[in-house]
Design a protein around this nucleic acid. Sequence first.
DNA 1: CAGTGGTCTAGACCACACG
DNA 2: GTGTGGTCTAGACCACTGA
Lengths: 239, 239
Amino acid sequence: MSQYPFRRLQTELASLIASLPAESRLPSEPELARRMGASRATLREAMRSFEGQGLIRRRQGVGTFVVAKVPVMDSGLEVLESIESLAARTSLPVRMGELQVREVSAGDGSAAALEVPEGTPLTQVERVIYTDNRPIAYLVDTLPVDVLAAAELQTGFTGSVLDLLLRRGDPKLTQSRTDIRAIGATSEVARALQIQRDDVLLHFVAQLYAKDGRVVDYSFSYFLPGYFHFHVVRRVGKT
Amino acid sequence: MSQYPFRRLQTELASLIASLPAESRLPSEPELARRMGASRATLREAMRSFEGQGLIRRRQGVGTFVVAKVPVMDSGLEVLESIESLAARTSLPVRMGELQVREVSAGDGSAAALEVPEGTPLTQVERVIYTDNRPIAYLVDTLPVDVLAAAELQTGFTGSVLDLLLRRGDPKLTQSRTDIRAIGATSEVARALQIQRDDVLLHFVAQLYAKDGRVVDYSFSYFLPGYFHFHVVRRVGKT
DNA sequence: CAGTGGTCTAGACCACACG
DNA sequence: GTGTGGTCTAGACCACTGA
């Protein structure tokens, strides 16, 4: 179809990556560009999709590495489930890193989403989920302080606000309304997930409802494609 | 946080776009780059996200234009629905373009997905969905020829294989298993949707099941974010 | 410190649309 | 033909890692 260098680099890179053992380091970018007869800019463009697929990992100041094949977390969307329990089902070890708990004041977006007045005090929980020292998800939950106080997160919090609320048993949770989006990583999210700006991410925006109809949690989740497979069964016919 | 030109360009571009009337043309890229004191490469990077949001549209050989605000198609994923009927609910005019119908032979992927032997004759239907002369979705359906023959698509096909099968009433359809992914556009898909390579897309891969348990359709759908909002209600609790 | 990836520049050439 | 966006190059400098 098209004989752009980009295409050629993609196929050459695919073979190169496939030919290398897991964990091994690729040649440096200037070296690879020289070998493949292209500019570094074009080479880097071609490398992007491989990182999105989770096949390679770039680390500034260190190098680019072939990633060992990681089992994918496969989940149906009908039931709300934390990454932790999903990982447990897949027997995939995950851990939490970079936990930040903040008290904030409800602004435009969070006030509307949580159905509270602007200025309502909120607890904001932000953390990165790792598997095998690789960030794979970035999660931000926002809740009214009377639902969850910052103090409750100081001990024994393992990463899932959902699991914490379920364990506590109050409030009683019923369902989540989740918007599903595809976005390019902003600089902030890219840094948290150790990927490049504009890399593709699956993005969930969810409101969690309690039995009394109250919105108890408003969350943003960012997932690295290649580590997650989400699916849904859609029935045919009218609402 | 970071004083990279990229950030500055993004905010300057945001103001510029917001300040211009719909349908108006932006200055050319070299001109804009000069005005904003950056290289064309950086400018183009900064413009990407705006195209993904559907705020601007670039057309090779013509220029870059501010897009009139288009109503978003919002859909729950619980019920399988064609873009056409979704658009009808939103009273958004859509039309089909670039219809291609092919007869192919089942290979690795499609044979497994359709649960037929390799080599089974298949009908492949490929088309782009437009609203307001803007491609917003690219759809590829693959079905066994005994479910749908190419001849049936010659007249009166308006873009939805689902609607066609439902109208025909045979086979009886029950549900679809849909995988939800986020990907960067390949060169081919980018061309079909008139976007840039690596632009972010929402991607559905679906198997459509008939009452007898047979897989009757295997489809790939690519959606421009900014024109679609998909959501799902997830219940809390065990499987 | 040396070497890596991350960002940016200036300029070139190509593909395309339109008069 | 002219002007637009699409691709690519060569080279520079920055930010980060680890010896």
